[in-house]
Design a protein around this nucleic acid. Structure first.
Lengths: 139, 139
DNA sequence: AATATTTTGCAACATAGTTGCACTGTACTA
DNA sequence: TAGTACAGTGCAACTATGTTGCAAAATATT
């Protein structure tokens, strides 16, 4: 059972607005990562483009969602686990992008392995993105 | 000693033009990855924006350079190793982005570990991007 | 209910990337 | 090496993406 939308917003010290409720609900309804364009499309003309941008930024800052890097120059957003706190993300899981259907998955159960870096390099964050064929698109 | 620029272009069945020679030389001169904007800045008004886009696309298709995914929504390009063939990249090394100086490095000697994916998921490509502090910026 | 504070929408702007088409430079052939 | 076929370039226009300032509206606080 999923956490109440209003409670989630309150927990992160955000005031309750229509756009925040709606956009958060999109993430709770979707098992996969969403792009800004997806949200814009889902919400139709209900919210201004700018509002969506600002809402997504706010959610990232508060640790509700996190960004996923992709090779094709688009930003994707997905819900954070509960351990994520404002300004301090713990997204040490692998992301998977399907080349066929373009869906992006958070593989929460696959953790990112530690890599050994050359001398003088210190890692703060590690992003592992795998692309290929997902379980819906395999033949 | 680095391979002759003209020979490299010929080897990849590309006709020799000023823009291709110049842009390839930027990559050979730079130890790090370059963005489109870097190349546009380096070349000044010598080439049209569109020409730079098309040249980079061509180089990627021919396996001369490869793209690097970044979390901040920008495409970076770096020279491929010799094993890269047209349409079939072998970029199984780790990329490192310095949070301080924004330089992107190809860590050729650090290979990407294999990850176990859930049933039905098949990996075609794996990108591992580490961010943190590089050896020039550590104190 | 009144006020202080946030949030939103609009307009304008900035950057990034693409496409069609005419023109120019490169490569090939005789 | 001159002529021709073709690949590559520059220009213009366009789309997509993302940002900023400011006034209006909604939310939170008392």
């Amino acid at each position: 059972m999923q956490l109440n939308i209003t409670d989630t917003l309150k927990k992160h010290q955000l005031s309750i607005t229509d756009s925040r409720k709606k956009i958060l609900s999109f993430f709770l309804q979707s098992a996969n990562a969403l792009a800004h364009a997806d949200i814009e499309h889902k919400s139709g003309t209900e919210f201004d483009r700018v509002t969506i941008y600002r809402t997504l930024q706010t959610f990232v800052e508060k640790g509700i969602i996190h960004t996923i890097p992709t090779a094709d120059n688009s930003i994707l957003y997905a819900l954070c686990k509960d351990e994520c706190v404002a300004g301090h993300h713990h997204d040490d899981h692998v992301h998977f992008i399907c080349d066929t259907c373009s869906t992006t998955y958070c593989l929460d159960h696959v953790s990112v392995p530690k890599v050994k870096l050359p001398k003088g390099f210190k890692a703060a964050q590690t992003d592992l993105v795998v692309s290929g064929t997902c379980n819906n698109c395999e033949q």
